[in-house]
């Protein structure tokens, strides 16, 4: 692992923490949903960068793709729940 990889990973972790503040403190549920979507995009990139660190990008791309698909399903489930409940 080079210093460049570590730098990229740390920058991504800091960006995730910024989103995490909105997820934990968010006044409404919509803030939390949007924050979770932002976290998942950063985390997908994080997984691919970890893949380049280990030199096995193909496997890690599979994980990140699977997570991206499931995150879509999760977000749809949350939105469906909020729609049924009416208020947030």
């Amino acid at each position: 692992m080079t210093g460049f990889h570590l730098f990229v990973l740390d920058i991504l972790a800091v960006m995730i923490i910024i989103y995490l503040y909105r997820v934990v403190r968010g006044p409404t549920v919509y803030d939390r949903v949007l924050g979770l979507n932002g976290i998942s995009t950063k985390a997908i990139i994080l997984l691919v960068v970890i893949g380049t660190v280990y030199g096995r990008v193909d496997m890690f791309v599979d994980i990140s793709t699977g997570y991206a698909l499931l995150n879509l399903v999760g977000a749809l489930a949350i939105i469906k729940y909020l729609e049924q409940r009416g208020t947030a």
Binding site: V24, G26, V29, V33, L36, I39, S40, I78
Partner: peptide, 8 residues
Amino acid sequence: SAVIILGS
């Protein structure tokens, strides 16, 4: 909210 945070 707890469910969303547990997902992350």
